[in-house]
Write a protein that binds this DNA or RNA. Sequence first.
DNA 1: ACTTGACTTGGACCTAACTCCAAGGTGTAA
DNA 2: TTACACCTTGGAGTTAGGTCCAAGTCAAGT
Lengths: 131, 131
Amino acid sequence: MTISEVSKKFDITADTLRYYERVGLLPSVNRTPSGQRDYDDKDIGWIEFIKCMRGAGLPIEVLIEYVGLFQQGDSTIEARKELLIEQREILREKLEAVQATINRLDYKIDVYENEMVPFEKKLKHNDQVDE
Amino acid sequence: MTISEVSKKFDITADTLRYYERVGLLPSVNRTPSGQRDYDDKDIGWIEFIKCMRGAGLPIEVLIEYVGLFQQGDSTIEARKELLIEQREILREKLEAVQATINRLDYKIDVYENEMVPFEKKLKHNDQVDE
DNA sequence: ACTTGACTTGGACCTAACTCCAAGGTGTAA
DNA sequence: TTACACCTTGGAGTTAGGTCCAAGTCAAGT
């Protein structure tokens, strides 16, 4: 799979895909004899994983560390698990914060709705007075 | 209230508070005769609001716009409401993404837990073989 | 009056995560 | 074989959101 195909498939720019590779987030992408990237299923899997994790806000550094551990084989299983648990905890806190803010916006929007009723009434009243 | 008191109260550095003011996010903070900031209840209210919104990831630009609308008075109530509705929608999507990623991490962590059982068994087996 | 600690400003600097560009190589259809 | 779209690299530039610093002012205690 070429870089532009992957780019379209995941809606990630080719520049970003090259950047990911450069920083060690996407190691060992195969090349065609002429040097062009040729993504295989394993690469696609990583990209899909990275897209999901980045979409939730995990820092690239953390993902690089995870990839690095993965490449070191079975001896890092425990470390990888700990890393994921730690990130999950951070995401749980983020979820809480986002939910709390949504609740607050719900309330504020509701107040605006109800504040507009007397506001519109006032406008109507003024219209009547003018007539 | 002095800047350091506000800083402690909300766990926001004084530099950040000044930065917020500079970019127009916290307009019209009163000063003492000697020119030092003296935050009042209204300021405190805004800071608390900003902290909550920033904590959920709303961009500063959007908050600046909201503050600006607010200062223009009642005629912007509808616009403010629309702005909040739009941001709420974005937060809902973020919530979805974070939740989906937590679920995925739950699954991966679970796999690691179960992958480690045979891994440890293997270790134990080796131990027995060695003895 | 002097010290100490908090406050002021303007502006430079920093980090994360891209994003863009120039200069050049490749591949395929007419 | 020429045109054209697509690929390559290294490196510079961008954006958001702070963060830090120097040089100076101010306030409270001794």
